[in-house]
Amino acid sequence: MGAAHEGQGYMTKAMRSPGEAQHEYREIRGFASFDDPETLSYIHSDGTPKFELIRQTEEFRTLRRRLTTFVFPMTALFLASYLTFVLLSAYAKDFVSTKVIGVINLGILLGLGQFVTSIIITLGYARYAKRRLDPQRKLLAEKTGVEE
């Protein structure tokens, strides 16, 4: 019963969107738990993957957690930094007009700073995806036998 029960155990810990809690699909999981773990297959006889089962595997949960814990905080971060720049430009004119290098003022430098942070986040995500996400995807593909 291993895989399916493990899946149920993790279900309670899974991250849920607001309003989703009351809405799970027990009948599908029930059906899965009757399978013999030795021959547990993630592919229907017609060749289509059993996505509901795959969704409950630990490999998938780990992947989803790794993805969301990176992209959502990062999105909040760059939006906050961008909006700070915008709000400063709109409401703190004297501050951003401070000259720093020759006639180049703080506002222009902060704007160029956005270019720099964009590149850093882009490269950071590419690296994170390569090291933490792609290998996990491969693991999941190997376990379930479903190719990309």
């Binding site: 599908i28 993957p49 969704r55 992947l63 989803r64 190719e147």
Partner: peptide
Amino acid sequence: AAKAAEMEVRAISGIGART
């Protein structure tokens, strides 16, 4: 529900995306 599960798995992991 089945389509939603398929979408979630495909969007995040890419497996089964070419079927």
